[in-house]
Nucleic acid binder design. Structure first.
Lengths: 254, 254
DNA sequence: TTAATAGTGTCTCTGAGACACTATGTG
DNA sequence: CACATAGTGTCTCAGAGACACTATTAA
């Protein structure tokens, strides 16, 4: 939620500080590893889906996991999340926001790893761009669930998927976050192509919220919000009356 | 925000995993330091206040900063925040929630430090319990400000305080978070003693939101929410009609 | 023409704001 | 008594749900 991060104010450059810095021993404290994990969400076939990667080695070898990776020493957390997402999926210029930081000791059996979780939202068309280099991946369907309930994932088989590490918890936190946010923040648009119908926007909101919405008041509310702008075009190739297409008015988020 | 954290599911114990673990070299990646910083908030004299600690050494020697400290290898992030708050202020059993993680390279001039920020809410009476061992501290007044505007801090002098590192940004994020949350989450009660009047509760909401609220609808809304329970007692030692005292019904958060 | 979805007009219900009024304490 | 704050009753207005109705496309 904070605004874009800048380096903070710099302290005055004084000789005694330089002496202190030179004598400072960064190895005095044992340090944890820090990673980012990304929950990538998009609607597909009437369900939310998330991208999972099969773990190529232990621990949890063969299990499904969120795309993740270590934070480098010279990059911000936001930059690490964008880099990891690009490296693991090929996707760039994606809506990406910090979610929560998970750091329970033992969440990774190898060593102490603190993971800063992010969530990313894309429109379903961009799932087509996904290329996972040399790795097995899956777009897992997230079963509709009400707030509070743990989300259930479905892959190709009939059994619900279990995720590696505490990734089920991270996924649940991401779903809870967008559920709480979609009513007042313009995140629904991130799950749709550039232009869309009001019905498609309503379907996205219903997917995220896990319940049906009233058509009339949804239309009224969104049209009154000033967030939408008619493109002038209408839907093509539908076997019923085509709907007007809208786009999100960036900047005018009221 | 996620439910209490447990260690994730453990992988099956297989011989080949043990071999992998034995060969795993944790020093292969350079690691950042990880700290927690705590924004402690309480209402006092009609203003929100936050506890600051004077930096005893460089960088930013003599400047005011949030209480913080390194995360130990064997404790969770929540536990680290509670421990740091206890060590720096003596306060225990405080409402404490993770806020956001700040990790811009250069935010600490000494080395790469990633800080998991928390915010803590206490009632003003508990400020009396605060003891900062051998350290200079200050309860700084947060000037009323509307959403979006950067918060302004006042200490004893007339000039606004500047904080060390990116701590002003962390404070701003904490204020923004509780502003967004107080309308639907029972956090206002954390800023009040066990029993309180509706007027005191309204004042706390007004402090957090930075604006006056309508008395009638505030009363109606809170009484209808089912969150409040009359204690049966009334205010003492006031020079006007005493108000009824209420307490928060924990568990019944609707 | 029918089926299907898009889109409009209007009634009702609920919650917030406004305001008038009564209640109960102190000095 | 005056004065201050606590607390109630009721009117109005705005937004959400419900529902009836019209519009426009394909088959």
């Amino acid at each position: 939620m904070p605004a874009p991060r800048r380096p903070g104010p710099q302290p005055p450059d004084r000789p005694e500080d330089r002496a202190f810095l030179a004598s400072y021993d960064p190895s005095a404290f044992e340090r944890p590893s820090v990673t980012v994990d990304v929950v990538l969400l998009a609607p597909l076939d009437g369900h939310l889906h998330t991208l999972l990667i099969r773990r190529p080695g232990p621990p949890f070898q063969g299990a499904w996991s969120l795309p993740g990776g270590f934070v480098r020493m010279d990059e911000s957390l936001d930059a690490a999340a964008a880099r990891v997402l690009r490296a693991k999926t090929g996707l760039e210029r994606v809506f990406l926001e910090q979610l929560y930081t998970f750091g329970t000791p033992g969440r990774d059996p190898r060593m102490r790893i603190i993971s800063v979780a992010y969530y990313a939202l894309v429109d379903p068309g961009r799932f087509g761009e996904v290329t996972v280099p040399g790795e097995d991946f899956l777009l897992a369907r997230i079963q509709p669930s009400r707030a509070g309930a743990a989300p259930v994932l479905k892959g190709a088989g009939s059994k619900p998927l279990a995720l590696a590490f505490d990734h089920a918890e991270i996924l649940a936190a991401a779903l809870q976050r967008i559920r709480g946010k979609i009513d007042y923040a313009p995140i629904g648009y991130e799950l749709l192509p550039e232009s869309f119908t009001l019905h498609q926007l309503q379907q996205v909101h219903e997917l995220v919220l896990g319940r049906k919405l009233n058509k009339d008041s949804f239309r009224r509310r969104l049209l009154a919000s000033g967030q939408l702008e008619a493109t002038g075009a209408i839907q093509q190739d539908v076997d019923h009356r085509p709907a007007a297409l809208y786009r999100f008015r960036r900047g005018a988020e009221g």
